[in-house]
Design a binder for these strands. Structure first.
Lengths: 128, 128, 128, 128
DNA sequence: GTGGTCTAGACCACT
DNA sequence: GTGGTCTAGACCACC
């Protein structure tokens, strides 16, 4: 299995989210052709029907459009993509605030931690 | 079921983590008596054996000590608690950095989001 | 395919009906020469044999007559055409009454809807 | 097979439409329990998965809500139901106008036909 | 080859 | 018993 699915969420939701994430991050650019249902099924280690359902959901939400005989493509809707990105980022931020709050760490301390951790990681972010 | 367990982690680990979180946050104070295995099992909706294992782990790690006849108590080891708190906080911070990185959001933007979200929530943090 | 056939009805019936409709509407005038079987087959995207059968039926019903060497022509039988038109119109009317009845809309409301919709469409009917 | 499906439309769409029609007509009242997926599958002569899909769509559209262990129920959203009814009625009206237009019958004549046909049918509508 | 649909049959959680 | 999910395998239309 090429993808580590969380047992608590339906696989089709996780696939849908993963593709959304790739779109939002720019791994899929507008107009890009999405891999075929069968190929995605192979690489996710899921059933084609499950992938199909994930992509149908994305289509309904406006992230991809399908052309019957040629494949699926990323929609040209940068507003949608941007708002999705914001939404995800806000969700992550809320999650972080909840997490540190659950152990009695203040938001201020949480921010300092981000600086400290990012330096330790020596990532690109360290330059900021 | 009184607790929403994640299907991917052993339940005893999740219980152990939850108790640790409560200690770190101060919901359990040093010297406090921990509820009986039987009561904890009820409130977690888990098997007493599972709770027993979680508490044994906590004991081995030095968070609680058991006194044969009177019950279990939170250890007086503020260093351990403090370092545990830091460790958890760092884990959360890393998680957050990974999350926002996965959608192409910078650390700087991530910090701004924390401010924005915490204001919207109108929580205690708002005073900071 | 130049014609969107309904999978539930034999194609030859659908072709026959379409020609009948054209006669009734006046797209084919009395005495007009009907296109050759070969041409009709092309434009309908059907097999010439299928078209042949449709035309034979129309001939049997008296809508067209075939002259061995010159082709097929629309018959001069305005009574037949008129009664066919009425029959079709009545079928449509019954269909409409059934449709609105199936969702609990009264005939009266159905008539008002026709006025409303035809105005919205801004079609020729608007003048009436 | 207890339901005559049109080969041109996906079965799940037809089932969804049929249930919608029943809601709109009042055969299903607000709060009514919908038959179970398995029962509906039997009565429609379709696969439970197909019925499931139809109902999921209806749920997404807000017509029904599902309670995990007890069944599905018609939502209390009379606005939605009313607007759906109007939409369907308008579709039927447009269809009728198109139909009669395709044989050169005017809207006015079409309305007269409705009166005539409804009297011939001797239905309740005849009193209007 | 592509997406789309359908069936059959299975398992799960919940009550 | 309920809804929900997943897999496996099939067929179709389109190009």
């Amino acid at each position: 299995m090429a993808y580590n699915f969380d047992a608590n969420l339906p696989i089709y939701v996780q696939i849908s989210n993963d593709v959304k994430r790739k779109i939002v991050k720019g791994e899929y650019q507008i107009g890009d052709k999405v891999e075929s249902v069968r190929d995605l099924a192979l690489s996710y280690g899921a059933n084609p029907n499950t992938v199909q359902r994930a992509l149908s959901d994305l289509e309904r939400e406006g992230f991809v459009r399908s052309e019957r005989t040629t494949g699926r493509f990323i929609c040209d809707d940068s507003n949608l993509i941007e708002s999705c990105k914001n939404e995800l980022a806000i969700d992550f931020a809320k999650q972080y605030l909840n997490d540190i709050d659950s152990i009695g760490v203040s938001k201020q301390k949480g921010i300092e931690l981000l600086e400290k951790v990012s330096i330790e990681r020596g990532t690109i972010d360290g330059k900021e």
